[in-house]
Design a protein around this nucleic acid. Structure first.
Length: 385
RNA sequence: GGAGGGGUGCCGGAGUGGUUAAUCGGAGCAGACUGUAAAUCUGCCGCCUGAAAUGGCUGCGCAGGUUCGAAUCCUGCCCCCUCCA
């Protein structure tokens, strides 16, 4: 395939950069964020909503679509884009993340992963080759290799095992990759071990993938470790190829990621937290359910240009959330995604003006990230349940 | 007028002699959510004190009584519901 990515501007103070992805269904300005549409929809938002707020590419999921409605079904209905009414680029995850998130329902062998469907309990076998085939049949603009994402609690031996298997699987994916006009990205693993990360990035880079995912991060480790690992990965990957920090999407993490030289992000966080009532503001996240919003007759964030902020008061959003009114989910999703896209637009502009450092400084001057200890404690609770 | 059923914390509703400040829902007050088994999960939730632990107070319709001990047993009263007249 011809090069599908080019760097347009770099930042003199660090690895931050702006660029462009050229894909089968259009171009994507980077740094970019992909809303998550695992089941062929960004929950609560339609394609028109997504376009309006600045979405250029969405992420969908091979595992979920394979189970329901089935790859063949989507293929028969004209491919994923047509099926979901989205004519822009779609990146598909291979199902590698489900190897991690559905740990209780799967078994990993060298050949592949056996899943028990979370829907009906039936057994399914996914291999690196099948993951690529399915993504090609879906019509993905960017495909991801099948990887094994270790648990943050795993010991070094387990992490090394998973990382090395990921490398062998990456090789197999590469060999079975037919639709060379659409890029297939390798995925760097290595847990939170600097050595393993570095090795993993080096091995993947040597395989010649057109782009790279940094996987297995933001899964319960301390944020210092996350950024160390991103640094290790980026350090070993070729400058001219895109770097995709998988599963990261909190506003503060996106800004830090860009500062580390990341080009692509995706995360369910902006949309999921939106549905659960946590909305982004320039000051940090706010729980719309809180009593303080009950009578507040003003937009959630005065500086926000989204549909929600332009038309509705905080008091109204508060009311909708308390009533579990369906409109809330859409308005909240639109707002959080727009918040992220605006951040990206500003970051890109700053990079192109070679002024990223001051953009970053100003952002962290006002935006208060979630308390790290609270976050990790709740995360452990969630992973351990 | 007669017969039966019932009154529990903001609401619903368990509990029928001690481990009950009182199961559990809901509401309320906060927190979390990062390649979506997530419109989900967690904590707090009588009053006063306290950061918390602790401590003190009040408490299962009302008033008495039995008992070492009562939301739970007894007596009287008030109120609500159903059926009969």
């Amino acid at each position: 395939m011809s090069e599908h990515f080019r760097v347009i501007g770099t930042s003199s103070g660090g690895p931050a950069r702006a660029g462009e992805l050229i894909l089968s269904h259009g171009r994507v300005q980077t740094p970019a964020f992909m809303p998550v549409a695992s089941q062929g929809t960004v929950k609560a938002a339609g394609p028109d909503d997504l376009r309006t707020i600045g979405t250029e590419m969405v992420l969908s999921n091979t595992y979920h679509l394979y189970l329901r409605p089935g790859i063949q079904t989507i293929e028969g209905l004209g491919g994923l884009h047509r099926f979901m009414g989205w004519n822009g680029p779609v990146l598909t995850d291979s199902g590698g993340y489900q190897v991690f998130s559905l740990a209780r329902l799967r078994q990993v062998t060298e050949e592949g992963v056996t899943f028990r469907s979370h829907i009906d309990g039936s057994e399914h076998f996914l291999t690196p080759e099948l993951a690529v085939e399915y993504q090609e049949r879906l019509g993905s603009d960017i495909m991801m290799v099948l990887d094994e994402c270790p648990m943050s609690t795993d010991d070094v031996v387990r992490v090394r095992e998973a990382t090395e298997r990921t490398h062998r699987w990456a090789e197999r994916c590469l060999r079975s990759w037919r639709k060379r006009e659409d890029p297939l990205y390798g995925i760097v693993q290595g847990g939170v071990s600097s050595g393993l990360r570095r090795d993993s990035a080096r091995v993947l880079a040597s395989m010649g993938f057109p782009g790279f995912g940094l996987g297995g991060l933001s899964l319960g480790e301390a944020s210092q470790q996350t950024w160390d690992m991103v640094g290790e990965g980026v350090g070993q990957l070729p400058q001219e190829k895109p770097r995709y920090l998988m599963g990261v999407g909190a506003p503060d993490d996106i800004v830090r990621g860009i500062a580390c030289g990341v080009d692509l992000f995706d995360s369910a966080l902006p949309t999921r937290t939106a549905r659960n009532g946590a909305l982004f503001t320039q000051w940090g996240r706010r729980n719309i359910k809180n009593d303080e919003f009950r009578l507040r007759d003003e937009p959630l964030d005065r500086t926000c240009d989204c549909y929600t902020c332009r038309h509705f008061s905080v008091a109204y959003l508060h009311h909708l959330f308390r009533c579990k009114e369906l409109l809330f989910y859409r308005l909240a999703t639109i707002h959080n995604l727009r918040f992220v896209f605006r951040l990206l637009e500003q970051a890109r502009e700053a990079i192109l003006k070679d002024d990223f450092a001051s953009f970053e400084r100003e952002f962290f001057n006002t935006y208060q990230p979630t308390n790290e200890e609270v976050r990790l404690e709740q995360k452990r609770r969630w992973l351990g349940r």
